[in-house]
């Protein structure tokens, strides 16, 4: 069986600084992994390289058997990757509805799929508001909806809890689990909040200075150890 996503010996640089170092991992269909690490350890850099916002120096990215290492971002979306960036990057001057429609290029229809407003009713209420005028939590929901309307096989989420209050974090975790069961995507999420990833991830990878230094499954995870990595 081919993995949903396979990363081999990935190296990413900013100029001379080597930020992602020889990263390898595999993600099975419907699996969900959390990449955890403190600020500046290279999580965002890795995820940006996955969606093609940063070029890789060496290594390969394979999505459902298709090598996409040097594909453009929009080609990766067509190949089945969805991306929710850190900081959400909602189009500020587009309405909520337009933010979603803009992401529906590759689908044939112009009707927003029902799951969007079922799972995020607040987006329906705010349909005609400008994206830039939503709260952080609302923007996060919009960013997730926007990534899912292209029907990805792998959803890449970069620090979805950043700057969001605990009650909304729990809601987002619930929504993600529900959507995952309904839409059958695999998930890669970068995080610093263990409580959140404990609810959505099957597997944990700890990143330190661009390398994976520790890996664990949810069943036998050593939360103290992960906490130690996150707080040093």
């Amino acid at each position: 069986m081919t993995a949903a996503l396979k990363i081999d010996n990935l190296n990413v640089f900013y100029g001379d600084s080597h930020v992602v170092r020889d990263i390898n991992f595999e993600l099975q269909d419907r699996e969900s992994i959390a990449i955890m690490g403190r600020n500046g350890m290279g999580k965002t850099t890795l995820l940006k390289a996955l969606i093609g916002l940063l070029p890789v120096r060496s290594g390969s990215v394979t999505l459902g058997g298709q090598v996409i290492t040097s594909a453009e971002s929009h080609e990766r979306v067509i190949a089945g990757m969805g991306y929710v960036p850190q900081g959400r990057e909602i189009f500020p001057y587009l309405t909520v509805r337009e933010n979603i429609l803009a992401a529906m290029q590759i689908s044939k229809t112009r009707t927003i799929p029902p799951f969007v407003y079922d799972v995020f009713p607040v987006l329906e209420e705010m349909q005609t508001r400008r994206g830039g005028n939503l709260s952080g939590g609302q923007q996060q929901q919009l960013a997730i909806a926007r990534a899912l309307v292209s029907n990805p096989k792998v959803l890449v989420l970069d620090e979805p809890t950043e700057g969001i209050q605990p009650s909304i974090i729990r809601e987002i975790a619930k929504a993600l689990n529900h959507l995952k069961a309904e839409l059958n995507f695999a998930l890669v999420v970068s995080e610093q909040v263990l409580g959140f990833t404990m609810e959505i991830a099957d597997r944990f990878l700890i990143m330190e200075k661009g390398e994976f230094v520790y890996e664990d499954n949810r069943e036998d995870v050593d939360t103290d150890k992960i906490h130690a990595y996150l707080t040093i």
């Binding site: 916002l53 979306v77 189009f91 290029q105 590759i106």
Partner: peptide, 11 residues
Amino acid sequence: QNRGMSGAIGI
């Protein structure tokens, strides 16, 4: 409004 993000949602 956002070139990079446009690509990342399939445009």
